[in-house]
Each structure stands twice: as C-alpha cells, then as structure tokens.
C-alpha cells in the first residue's frame, strides 16, 4: 500500500518549496512591522506573555539568558553610520519569522517542528525531545527552551488563575516559540467554518498586534489580496521566495531580515525613517 502511494505520488513528493511544495496553502499568515512608528514600549512582549502562558523566569535566569520571551524588543544603539546617532536606540520587535523555508525544521530529529498548511512553522511540544538543534540553526535565535520546569515557580497562587486556558503550559525539556497566536487562528477558523463563511481580514489578530499602541504590527493572511498585510507587502514591493528585494525607490521601506540566507521569512519590516541633515 505504501509502495503504491509512493509510486503514484512520486512527483508530488519530490517538489521543493520552489515549485510550490507538497501541498497548497490554505492561508499564509504574515506580518508587517513598521519600525518607524514602533516606540519600543514592550506592550507587545507583555501581551505575548499574557496570551501564551510564557513563564516569568526571574532576574537570575534572565541574566543567564534563560528567559522565555517569545517576542523580544531588541535595542540597538550603535548606529554611527547614521547622521544622527544620538537620537537614541532603535527598536526591533523580534519574534519567530515563520520562515517558509525554515532552517529549524529539517534539522529536528523527530519532526517535532514542521510546516502547517497555514504556512506556519509549528512546534509540537509533545513530540519534542529537546535536542535543541532547531534553535542552533535559527539565525534569529527566536526559539526558547524550557531549561527548568518553569511552571513550578512562575505563577504562584493565585497567579495561576490568569493562565490562558486555550493553550498549554510547557514542562522542562521542550522547545517553544512564537506561534502567531495559533489558538486565536484556530478558534477564528472554527468560528468561520461553523458560520459557513470565509475568514475575514481583521476578524482577529495576534496578541502583540492587538496590544500595539501605535499599530506598528499588522497581522493577516498574506494570501488574501485584500488583507491589510498583503497590501502593505505590495505597497513596499516586498516579494516572497527571493533572497534580495530588487527596488531602487527609497520610499519603499520594506525588507525582510536575513532573507539573503534563503529562508523566506514571513515578516516584513519597514525601515525607520531618519531625517537627513
């Protein structure tokens, strides 16, 4: 039977992402983050902690680099090449980029991380054995490992009451990372299905996008042409499946981080605008 399956679907099984891959995508969730209006307030990160039951690890473990912030706001000061370096830090909200050709996926020995038909890079906690190879092969270093059983000390009574019942609390020894609030995606999809209609743009959004006071983070279905995120990608002439965005208009500020590594990230960043002298 399996041999039959193998032979009849051989050409399908041999397709890489350049030829569209094994299956068609139902959705392709993507993001656009405008760094120009990001104030670095960390509301997104906080919202992420609340939504996704992220463990609070305490100052010592944070210092050791064992924190669990799926979404971190990176700060860069050293911008001496700019005209006004004294303008302070520039901020970069960094979460899993849900790469289309994710480097973390093929290295997992047990296939605990894989690509969903939604274009998400999913992590199966139950399957993870904690070899941590995925994190080593992630150029963004946005995968977080449960070095301890954080749940034991992270939410002392009655704080455990604030945990989100839609998702799990992870135990020691598994890898976790930003899921694009997959629980929200799933419930919105289910709701649309129950009501027998298509999922609409803006019907739901991720916790970080919801919390962002300046609306710097835009989330949506990249495949849906009318979605806000698809329009933004289009406006800034950012295309997928390339290693370099070819454009000469400086007004088009969009770029994807480390796209030269051919990993095809799903997050477009809009460059910060600095006035010239």
């Amino acid at each position: 039977m399996s041999l039959d399956n193998l032979l009849s679907n051989w050409s399908q099984y041999r397709k890489g992402h350049e030829e569209g891959g094994f299956h068609d995508y139902e959705h392709r969730w993507g993001m656009a983050i405008d760094l120009d209006i990001c104030t670095g307030c960390n509301a997104c990160s906080t919202a992420c902690y609340a939504e996704n039951n992220l463990a609070v690890v305490g100052p010592e473990r944070f210092e050791k680099g064992q924190a669990m912030h799926w979404l971190r706001v990176e700060r860069y000061w050293d911008q001496s090449e700019l005209d006004h370096p004294e303008q302070g830090a520039s901020f970069l909200p960094m979460m899993c980029q849900q790469c289309n050709a994710a480097t973390c996926e093929p290295v997992c020995p047990v296939a605990a991380t894989y690509h969903t038909p939604d274009g998400l890079n999913a992590q199966i906690y139950n399957r993870c054995i904690g070899s941590r190879y995925c994190s080593n092969n992630c150029p963004f270093r946005v995968r977080y490992f449960n070095f301890y059983s954080y749940y034991e000390s992270s939410w002392p009574e009655p704080l455990n009451m604030q945990l989100n019942p839609d998702i799990t609390v992870r135990d020691k020894g598994v890898m976790e990372k930003c899921t694009y609030c997959v629980q929200r995606i799933r419930s919105a999809k289910n709701k649309a299905k129950m009501e027998d209609r298509k999922l609409e743009d803006g019907e739901f959004t991720t916790a970080c996008a919801q919390a962002c006071p300046t609306n710097a983070i835009v989330f949506g279905d990249w495949q849906d042409e009318n979605s806000q995120v698809a329009k933004l990608w289009k406006k800034h002439e950012v295309t997928r499946a390339v290693t370099k965005q070819n454009k000469d208009n400086p007004e088009k500020r969009g770029y994807r981080i480390f796209e030269e590594l051919n990993i095809d990230p799903s997050v477009m960043y809009l460059e910060r605008v600095r006035e010239k002298v």
């Binding site: 399996s2 399956n5 193998l6 679907n9 399908q12 099984y13 041999r14 397709k15 890489g16 992402h17 350049e18 891959g21 094994f22 299956h23 289309n100 050709a101 994710a102 480097t103 973390c104 996926e105 093929p106 997992c108 296939a111 991380t113 894989y114 690509h115 095809d264």
Partner: peptide
C-alpha cells in the same frame, strides 16, 4: 511517504 507531516523547510517529502 506515509508521514506527510514531514514537508519541512521547503524540502520535498
């Protein structure tokens, strides 16, 4: 071929 969760990293099955 019988473990189709495997499409990963843009690689073929």
């Amino acid at each position: 071929a019988s473990f189709l969760v495997q499409p990963q990293g843009g690689k073929p099955v």
